[in-house]
Design a protein around this nucleic acid. Structure first.
Length: 547
RNA sequence: GGCUCGUUGGUGAAGUGGCUUAACACAUAGCCCUCUCAAGGCUACAUUCUCGGGUUCGAAUCCCGAACGAGUCACCA
């Protein structure tokens, strides 16, 4: 039996060679300095904020160098798979403005010339590469059961040796070919392991784009490359896929840092050019005084759908992620307000090597500023889009009163320092509900300094009878408020009242407040004159008389 | 336990031996402006960079050690 026959015996199936695949997936013809990156999730649910953070950096780096960003699905663990997982990822990415050049576009379709972009459809490719190793005596079958492995580990613990399947502990490493064949003929199941040429005492040095120069022990573990079901492990799939898809930069979470020696070794064994690595720290959350990784299971704010449901604009999320990625972005953006994230050049070197606390407070602040710079029409359109999906009541009102709603959004907006009351589109109803009669029910009035109902009635009646004229401009309107105040024994100016509080019942502000609460029930609203303008004569009189 | 990484305020952080009496932003507090709120303006908020040694005329920045935190050690990714 030749080496080739032996390899075919262990992994029967196709007869392609590595060269065939090299020809099928040639080097990419890209401009100098172009970066090829990928986002490679397993379809186990929806996208996590930390994953979006990584995907954001990956796509940004590709984009700003005129490179390629693609989506590859890592579905080699069939136990963990979730129905419709791929579609969930695609939607989440789309919702957050991360667009792909190549890769999966649905559960089973893809675009690009380096596919399939889903690992379960690449089984033959991995096996071809594994066969090469077997042929060259760099890989071998291992028949250890879970129990066998467990025993090895226990023994290592009692002897206080390093844990793992390596060197003298690699039980099946030296099995003869005859032994292997007879085991297989008996029907024993097996995996394929790398025959690691590394020594733990040796160091491998490599330069991580984020963490800097790192010195790690060489890999000496005979890691599994092909599992019992014929599918590859992450390590092997990483080698094969990122080589054939011509990825230049591997950007991933720093939980992968300890396996870099494995990956470096794999690339070396095949003689392939190693990609550059950038290991980014996870987003953190403070929980009872300790910092831990933001967890999708424990933290609702970890799922990016959370932001979508609240109506936080995707631009704001991206703006925030960009400040976390490169903190100099914040300063740059302050000086370039008319620019967007796309115009900023992200740098690997400026990515923090330790994890950042994910600060929802700051995100909201960014979002608030972002929304304040939009036009009323834009706010309307985005609110419409949001409510269409998440708030049908609001949606109906926005459709029914389109121009009116735009005018409501326009209050204190077209000015140098625009109003900043909306941090997300779910705030629209919270902030503006009283502008819609349909929502102006079940009222609870929050009177401020003046709470005596007789006095309130007196103020309102006097106002409606003597001072209300819907055609007044703002100055006239406000002067009339002052007239009203003084006619009832209140100070025209707040200052006067503060100087001689005993001379007055209150001041013009107290009077305005009565009107404000009567019309909106709230003590905190935007400009009262503007509100009245939009409400109009009939509704003003109506709301006051109903009171 | 082995290996590896990290540690500047409540938070994100700037900072690479003298320009730092530690930038900027968020949060918080106070004042001002003001018909209310939001915004805006002003002010306050680390005498010190986890701790302990060392090198140096000089250290947050360089070296050594410790503490703490994190990651990893699967036929999961």
């Amino acid at each position: 039996m030749t080496n080739k026959e032996y390899a075919d015996f262990l992994l029967p199936g196709n007869d392609k060679t590595i060269e065939d695949y090299e020809k099928m997936y040639p080097e990419r013809n890209l401009p100098e300095g172009a970066i090829v990156t990928r986002y490679a999730p397993s379809p186990t649910g929806f996208v996590h904020m930390g994953a979006l953070f990584a995907a954001f950096i990956e796509s940004k780096m590709a984009r700003q160098t005129n490179g390629v960003f693609y989506l590859r699905i890592e579905d080699t663990d069939q136990k963990r798979e979730v129905e419709n997982g791929v579609n969930g990822i695609i939607t989440d990415l789309k919702n957050y403005g991360v667009t792909i050049d190549e890769g999966m576009t649905s559960e089973s379709e893809w675009i690009g010339n380096y596919g399939p972009y889903i690992q379960s459809k690449r089984k033959e490719i991995y096996q071809t590469f594994a066969k090469y190793l077997i042929e060259n005596d760099l890989a071998y079958p291992c028949f250890c059961s879970e129990e066998d492995l467990d025993n090895i580990r226990k023994e290592q613990e009692t002897v206080k040796d390093r844990i793992g399947y390596y060197g003298k502990w690699a039980r099946d490493r030296y099995l003869s070919r005859e032994e292997v064949i007879s085991k297989i003929e008996k029907g024993e199941s097996y995996v394929i392991r790398l025959k690691s040429p590394g020594k733990f005492e040796n160091k491998v040095v490599y330069d991580d784009l984020v963490k800097g120069k790192l010195e790690l022990p060489e890999n000496d573990m005979d890691i599994v490359i092909i599992k019992g079901d014929g599918l590859p492990t992450y390590h092997f799939a990483h080698l094969v896929d990122d080589h054939l898809m011509r990825t230049t930069h591997i950007i991933r979470g720093d939980e992968w840092l300890p396996s870099v020696p494995i990956h470096l070794q794999l690339f070396k064994v095949f003689g392939f050019k190693t990609p550059k690595y950038a290991h980014i720290a996870p987003l953190l959350k403070e929980d009872n005084g300790i910092r831990r990784k933001l967890s999708k299971r424990k933290d609702p704010e970890a799922a990016i759908s959370y932001y979508h449901e609240k109506g936080i604009p995707l631009e704001a999320v991206l703006l925030y992620l960009c400040t976390v990625a490169n903190s100099n972005f914040e300063m740059w953006y302050l000086q370039n307000k008319d620019k967007t994230v796309d115009d900023f050049k992200l740098e690997f070197k400026k990515i923090s090597s330790s994890g950042s606390l994910f600060d929802v407070e700051k995100l909201l602040n960014i979002s608030k500023n972002y929304i304040s710079l939009l036009t009323a029409e834009e706010v309307y359109n985005k609110s419409l889009e949001y409510s269409e999906r998440y708030d049908s009541e609001l949606h109906d009102l926005l459709v029914k009163y389109k121009d009116y709603s735009i005018n409501v959004f326009n209050i204190e907006r077209n000015q140098k320092k625009p109003r900043k009351d909306l941090a997300m589109f779910s705030d629209v109803k919270k902030e503006n509900w009283y502008m819609y009669d349909e929502l102006f029910t079940n009222l609870e009035y929050n009177w401020d300094t003046i709470t005596d109902m007789n006095e309130i009635k007196n103020i309102l009646n006097t106002y409606v009878e003597k001072y209300f004229d819907e055609n007044d401009d703002k100055e006239t309107w406000f002067n009339k408020m002052k007239d009203l105040a003084s006619s009832l024994g209140y100070a025209r100016e707040v200052k006067d009242y503060k100087e001689n509080p005993d001379n007055y019942k209150g001041h013009v502000g107290d009077i305005s407040m009565v009107l404000r609460v009567a019309l909106t029930t709230k003590t905190m609203t935007p400009d009262l004159y503007e509100i009245m303008k939009l409400l109009g004569k009939e509704r003003i009189k109506d709301r006051i008389s109903k009171l």
